[in-house]
Design a protein around this nucleic acid. Structure first.
Length: 658
RNA sequence: GCCGGCGUAGCUCAGUGGUAGAGCAGCUGUUUCGUAAACAGCAGGUCAUCAGUUCGAAUCUGAUCGCCGGCUCCA
């Protein structure tokens, strides 16, 4: 098992007092990275590197890379705060921790910053660094610190949170900040950096508290590394599924439909259909039974399930009818439970696995929706496994194996398992019943142990009804996103008073395992678009081959080729536009079509096609049937991951794509 | 939901108070071409929406909708 002791930021540290449970989770996440990725490291979105336990006296060269970066980023944040205070003497400053890829500092300023302000702040920072003044550590009695920061309410609040009688401070030049360090020795030790953006951020991450202005900076030890990072930012925007979705005609949005309600165009719909067909077949083989249930239900149903109490904010408001209130379902579990309940069940029938490609509607806040990855209408590859408590572990393990297999087929390699637990202090969000949490957690832990799969823990990330095992995918920038999730639920069986008849003839309560393997079609599609940069493997490509007639007289033959391909079950098109062959090739290339089949006089005479790949490779001329065999082999190989050999494990190095 | 930025043709973008522009894509015609862009012409916009300021608004102001970067939240 890969758990590594948690080392939360210390109180008094810049990064410390603000740490809410999410930030704590992020900090934790960093420490459990299981398999080191080969260079360059793409750390998680937030959290920063490990601070050294020692003081700042140790020379930088003797520290680990993570510790050096931690100090440099932290120090850069201080220098930035100094520069901002110089620009806005009335500014209040809050916290400025190092984070992955750089640092930030939060301020309350008399006016809104714009990106145009960043060069000015950067210039002032560079002046500070040139002067190469030392970072000096000192301590001060609490009372004195409270006086010193009398005009800085955020600092006062941080001091209030420190238990000691003395507080730790760092000074560089005229700038004195509440801080536990450590720092680099002098401002001149801060390496290349670039201020990247300004954004709003709540004080202490609490939406009920003031909105501050946060300035983000990127910082690495060398200009090359910084350039590399900035290059990755560009690569990420090239791969952005919203951009590719438009260019490759995968999906579209429209103001008239509303935010978070994208529409899949034929090509995007083709990919989704392929994903659905794949997973439905996997489930059929694994003994799942597929059902259809409505997307609406009475409010009563969700009161019974507990959604109304714990998940109301995520639901669209009810529709008032004459004698009842209906809501759009935010989850599918209640409906599947009613299917289970529609008849009496014997222990001999269990486990019963009820599955559905089920559409649900969630009222996501307006500021968070976008593209396909965060939507208000989503279709989940959902299933609920009703089993005996004794079967839960094996069923859970079976789901994990299905996830591993599906990911291998989809080419997803960069992910981590997260055990999402409740925040025991949050009584509003989570159902209050210690036993269901303990039992659920135990099932997950034991199953993961038997499978030998590593995971990290995240308190405060559970579903309201139980703990879950989330599969966290990482994008090219290292940002994590929950996709597949498996949950062990003892709450809903209780709420609905579910039962099966046991060997002893008495009623027993089943356990429900909720799970999504592909997860929501929308989010998985957005991830795959970015993973493959739009260049889908042949089995998923919306158009697998583009037939390109060289001149008009080859049009009939091109359509014959098209017919052969379609008869063989492939997705192909003919580019019959009045364009030169070069233009057609370019067009197919930009559309990332895997194969271009050029047909001219020679091919027509030989009933052949000249095959070019989107990588620019010329495979030469071959008979149509030979190309069809080749494509068939390619597709069946990618859809059967066992051919590539079993490869169970957590995070693996991404091979990239495109 | 909150902070900030943005919204001009299908796409990418010019246009800062005086009658709306380009390239690509589209359509039509010419060309019939051998592995990443042939040539010519045509067509295409109540400048997101609504209200206001002004003799006059794409341009200034406000509200609403949508998009983007974050925060909070999340599959």
């Amino acid at each position: 098992m890969s758990r590594i002791p948690t080392a939360l930021p210390r109180a008094g540290d810049d990064a410390g007092p603000v740490t809410g449970r999410n930030e704590a989770a992020r900090n934790q996440r960093l420490r459990i990275r299981v398999e080191p990725r080969s260079a360059p490291p793409v750390p998680a979105k937030d959290g920063g590197a490990l601070p050294s336990a020692g003081g700042s006296a140790m020379p930088l060269e003797e520290l680990s890379r993570d510790e050096r970066l931690y100090r440099m980023r932290h120090s850069a944040a201080h220098v930035m705060a100094e520069a901002v205070l110089e620009l806005f003497p009335e500014a209040q400053f809050a916290i400025g921790p190092p984070i992955d890829n750089g640092f930030y500092y939060d301020f309350l300023l008399p006016r809104a910053l714009t990106p145009e302000d960043l060069p000015e702040i950067e210039a002032r920072m560079r002046t500070r660094m040139k002067s190469n003044v030392p970072f000096e550590h000192s301590e001060m009695p609490r009372a004195e610190a409270l006086r010193h920061f009398a005009a800085q309410p955020f600092k006062l609040e941080l001091i209030e949170g420190i238990a000691d009688d003395t507080v730790s401070l760092y000074r560089q030049g005229e700038f004195l900040d509440l801080c536990e360090g450590p720092h680099v020795a002098r401002t001149g030790d801060v390496p290349p950096f670039k201020l990247t953006s300004v954004a709003g951020a709540y004080w202490r991450g609490d939406e009920k508290r003031p909105m501050l202005q946060r300035i983000y900076g990127a910082l690495f030890e060398s200009q090359d590394e910084l350039d590399d990072y900035l290059g990755r930012l560009e690569e990420a925007s090239r791969r952005d599924h919203r951009k590719l979705g438009r260019e490759l005609e995968l999906f579209t949005t429209n103001e008239l439909i509303g935010a978070g309600l994208p529409m899949l165009l034929p090509k995007g719909a083709t990919i989704r259909r392929l994903l659905e067909e794949y997973i439905l077949e996997q489930e059929r083989q694994a003994g799942y039974q597929h059902v259809y249930t409505p997307v609406l239900g009475k409010v009563e149903l969700y009161k019974t399930s507990g959604h109304w109490e714990h998940y109301k904010d995520g639901m669209f408001p009810p529709m008032q009818l004459e004698h009842e209130e209906l809501v759009l379902r935010p989850m599918n579990c209640p409906h599947h439970i009613l299917i289970y309940q529609s008849t009496l069940h014997s222990y001999r029938e269990l486990p019963i696995r009820i599955a559905e490609l089920a559409t649900m509607y969630r009222y996501e806040k307006s500021g968070v929706v976008g593209g396909l990855s965060r939507v208000r209408a989503m279709t989940l590859n959902d299933a609920h496994i009703f089993c005996t408590p004794g079967q839960a572990k094996a069923e859970f393990a079976g789901v994990m194996r299905m996830v591993e297999r599906a990911y291998r087929t989809l080419g997803i390699t960069d992910y981590a398992y997260r055990l999402s637990l409740r925040d025991p202090d949050d009584h509003e969000k989570y159902v209050q019943d210690d036993e269901i949490w303990e039992v659920g957690e135990r099932v997950i832990r034991e199953a993961m142990a038997e499978l030998g799969l590593p995971f990290y823990e995240a308190p405060g990330e559970a579903a309201f009804y139980g703990p879950k095992l989330d599969i966290q995918l990482r994008d090219i920038l290292g940002r994590e996103e929950t996709v597949s999730t498996i949950q062990v639920d003892l709450h809903l069986p209780k709420q609905f008073d579910l039962a099966y008849i046991g060997e002893d003839g008495a009623h027993h309560r089943p356990v429900i395992i909720h799970r999504g393997v592909i997860s929501t079609m929308e989010r998985m599609l957005s991830y795959l678009i970015e993973l493959y940069a739009g260049a889908f493997p042949a089995w998923l490509a919306p158009v697998q081959a583009m037939v390109i007639p060289i001149a008009d007289r080859h049009g009939d033959y091109a359509h014959e080729v098209l017919g052969e391909l379609r008869t063989a079950g492939f997705r192909a098109e003919v580019d019959a536009r009045n364009d030169r062959m070069n233009a057609k090739i370019r067009h197919a290339q930009l559309q990332k079509v895997p194969y271009m089949l050029v047909v001219g006089d020679r091919e027509q005479d030989a009933r052949a096609v000249a095959v070019r790949t989107r990588a620019g490779e010329d495979l030469g001329t071959m008979p149509i049937f030979q190309f069809i065999d080749r494509l068939r082999d390619e597709v069946s190989t990618s859809q059967d991951p066992e051919v590539a050999g079993p490869d169970v494990g957590g995070r693996r190095q991404s091979e990239g794509a495109g």
